[in-house]
Design a protein around this nucleic acid. Structure first.
Lengths: 337, 337
DNA sequence: CAACGTTGTTCCAACGTTGTAAACCGTCCT
DNA sequence: AGGACGGTTTACAACGTTGGAACAACGTTG
C-alpha cells in the first residue's frame, strides 16, 4: 500500500500518535517535533488512508445524491450545485440514478447502512411517505423536490402551488383566456403534477376561466410534443399553454412551430425549471426559475445538521425562492376580448 | 454502530471467521452451520461495513468520473451511461467537476492516493500529457474524450478528425460553398478544437473551398450565439456553418433565427454531440452522434482491466463509433452555383 | 490401529487510523 | 528537597473485516 503514519513516525523518530496529532492539527505539539514530523510528512508525501480513518471515525465523507435521471437538464444543473455545496463541506457526492423506480430508491437508502455513504439527498418519485417513516435505520436523509411534503424527513422545495399560480396569472394578464395546462399525470404517485395543477386551477377558477388539461406519462420533450399535438387536434385550440416543466414546453414548442403556428402570437407558452435550453430556444421560453443554488445549499446544510447531531428534532420543511422569468414566448400583450 | 460479524457470530454460536466465510460464499462450510449462520444474518439484518472491508482489501469500490461540467448536456448524458456501466461492475461513481481547471484535475488524481477511489475516468482539459506521464502513483486512469491521444494512459474517444470531415463533406454535398467552422479555440490547450478544425480543413481543401473560422472561448450556447453574430456581421456571410458541438450550434441557431434568416434555407447548420436538445429544436439539428453508451462501457472496461491487473502493458487507444444524423437544419439540397 | 488426508472451524494478526489513559519531563511553588 | 502542575509524548486498544495458520473431527488407507 501507500505511505502510512507508521512510515512517517519511523522516519521522524516519533510515535505514530504524534504524527497523527500533527496531521490533525492537535494543539499541544512542540514546535521542534512539529517541524521534524512535517519534514518527514512531506518527504514521504504522506496521504491519510481514508478507509482507515472512516472505519475509525464511523464516517465515509461521502453523501449520495439520488435523482430520477441525470440527463434531464434540470437535474444536471441541480447536481452541479449540490456537488459544489457538498465540496465546501469536504464531502464527495456519488450520484445514483433511480429512474424513478421504487426498488432503486430503496437501494439508495440501504447504501447508508452499508456504510458507503453518510447521508442521502433524495429526489423521490416512487417511494412513499409511509415507507420512509417506517425506516428503522437512523440514516440522515433530506428530500429534495416536490414529492413529499410534511413527510418523515427534512425537505426542501419551492412552493409549487404558488409558482404555478403565478405563471397562470401571468398568462391571464397577457389577455389569454383559453389557457391549457400541460403535464398532469394520471397516476397520482408523482407529487409534482397535482401541486402545479392545483396552482393552475386556482388561478383559472379565480377568473372563472375554463380549464383544459393535457396529461403526460413523463416529463420529457417527446411527451410535451405529443401532448401538444393532442391539444392542437381538439376543436377549440388554446391561446396559451402552461407546461409543468421546461422540457415539456420545449417539446410543445416544437409541435406548435412545426404546425406553422407562431409563439407567442398564436399560442403563448410558459414552462417551469429555467433550464438553459429555454434561454436559447427560438423564441426564448418564459419560465419559473427556482433558485437551484439555494435549493442545493439548503439540502446540504440540512444534511450536515443531521449528521452533526445538532438537529434531533422533527423533520424540517424549508421553502426555496423562485422567480418568474418572462421571455419571448409570452412577450407582447394581446388586447382582452 | 450497526450490526457486525461479531454480533452475528455470537447469535449463531460460531466464530467470526465462519460468519465471514458464509457471507463471502466460501466453499467449505457445512450445510448445518451455513443454515444457522444465515438465519442469524437475516435475523439481525447484517450489512457488511464497507469501510472495514475496504481497509482490509485495499479497495473502495468507488471510481471517480471527472468532467469539466455536469450541466453541459453532453456530459450529463455521458455520465448517465458511465454510472450505468459502472453499476454493472458494482462500482459507485463519484462525479467531480473540474471546470477545466488544472488544479482541480490534479486534485481528482490525488483522490486515488487518498484511497477515496480506486480509479479515475477523466475528461481532461488542462492537464498535460507530460504531467500525466510523470505521475508516480500507480492509479488506474482512463482518459475520455479528445484531449490527449497516444498519451500516458488508456484512452477512448471517437475519431474527431474523421467525424468533422464527414460533417463538412455532408454540407458540401448539399451544394453549400461558403461553409464556416465555428468553435476553433485560441489557446491551443484544448485538444478537441484542433482535431475538428483539421477535419473541416481537410474536407474544404480537398474541394478547394475557402475556409472561414470563428473562434470561441467556451463550448456553450452563449459563445455560439456571439460567434454567429460575428459571422453574420462579416461582408460575406456563410451559407452553412459547422459548429464544433451542439451547444454552439443551438446558440448559433438562435442568432440566425433572431436575425430573420432561415435554417436551413439561408444557412444550413450542423453540430456534433447529439444532445437531446438538438432533437427538439426548431429546426431539428443535424449532428454527429458519438455512441455514448459504447464510450462509457469501454472506459469502464478499460478501468476494470487495469484494476484487475489483467492489463499491465502500455496504454491502449480505443476508438468508439459515431454516425452522422441528418435532420432538418441541413435538409434539402440547394443547386450548386 | 496408527498414520494420513480431507473437511470444517477457530484463532491470530493485520489493514491504518484515532481516543483514552498513562507516562514523561521540566518548572514552579511550598 | 519534595510535590504539584502543565505541557508534551507515548502505549495500547479498538473500529470491522479477511487471509493464513492452526486445530479438531472424521473417514480412509496401509
Amino acid at each position: 500500500m501507500g505511505v502510512s503514519l507508521r512510515d512517517v513516525a519511523l522516519l521522524a523518530g516519533v510515535s505514530v500518535k504524534t504524527v497523527s496529532n500533527v496531521v490533525n492539527g492537535y494543539a499541544h505539539v512542540s514546535p521542534a517535533t512539529r517541524a521534524k514530523v512535517e519534514r518527514a510528512l512531506s518527504q514521504l508525501d504522506y496521504r491519510p488512508n481514508l478507509s482507515a480513518r472512516n472505519l475509525r471515525l464511523g464516517r465515509t465523507g461521502v453523501i449520495a445524491l439520488a435523482l430520477p435521471e441525470l440527463d434531464a437538464p434540470y437535474f444536471a444543473e441541480l447536481s452541479r450545485f449540490v456537488i459544489d455545496a457538498a465540496a465546501e463541506q469536504r464531502w464527495l457526492v456519488v450520484i445514483e440514478q433511480t429512474d424513478g423506480s421504487l426498488e432503486r430508491e430503496r437501494q439508495v437508502l440501504d447504501g447508508v447502512r452499508d456504510h458507503r455513504v453518510d447521508g442521502v439527498i433524495l429526489s423521490p418519485v416512487s417511494i412513499g411517505a409511509e415507507e420512509l417513516a417506517a425506516r428503522t435505520d437512523d440514516a440522515a436523509l433530506v428530500l429534495l423536490g416536490e414529492r413529499i411534503y410534511d413527510g418523515p424527513a427534512d425537505h426542501v422545495a419551492i412552493d409549487n402551488v404558488r409558482a404555478a399560480r403565478d405563471v397562470t396569472e401571468h398568462l391571464i394578464g397577457l389577455g389569454r383566456r383559453r389557457i391549457a395546462a400541460l403535464g398532469a399525470q394520471d397516476n397520482s404517485i408523482s407529487g409534482t403534477a397535482p401541486l402545479r395543477l392545483a396552482g393552475y386551477a386556482e388561478a383559472m377558477a379565480a377568473r372563472g376561466l375554463p380549464q383544459t388539461i393535457a396529461e403526460v406519462d413523463s416529463y420529457r420533450r417527446a411527451e410535451g410534443a405529443a401532448a401538444m399535438a393532442r391539444l392542437l387536434a381538439a376543436p377549440e385550440t388554446p391561446d396559451a399553454v402552461f407546461c409543468f416543466n421546461d422540457l415539456l414546453a420545449l417539446g410543445a414548442m416544437r409541435t406548435i412551430l412545426a404546425a406553422g403556428l407562431r409563439v407567442p402570437e398564436d399560442i403563448a407558452l410558459a414552462g417551469l425549471d429555467d433550464i438553459e435550453d429555454g434561454r436559447y430556444s427560438t423564441p426564448t421560453l418564459t419560465t419559473v426559475a427556482p433558485d437551484k443554488a439555494q435549493l442545493a445549499r439548503i439540502a446540504v446544510d440540512l444534511l450536515r445538521a443531521r449528521l452533526d447531531g445538532r438537529t434531533a428534532g422533527p423533520p424540517r420543511e424549508v421553502r426555496a425562492d423562485y422567480r418568474l422569468v418572462v421571455r419571448e414566448s409570452t412577450a407582447g400583450r394581446v388586447p382582452t376580448r
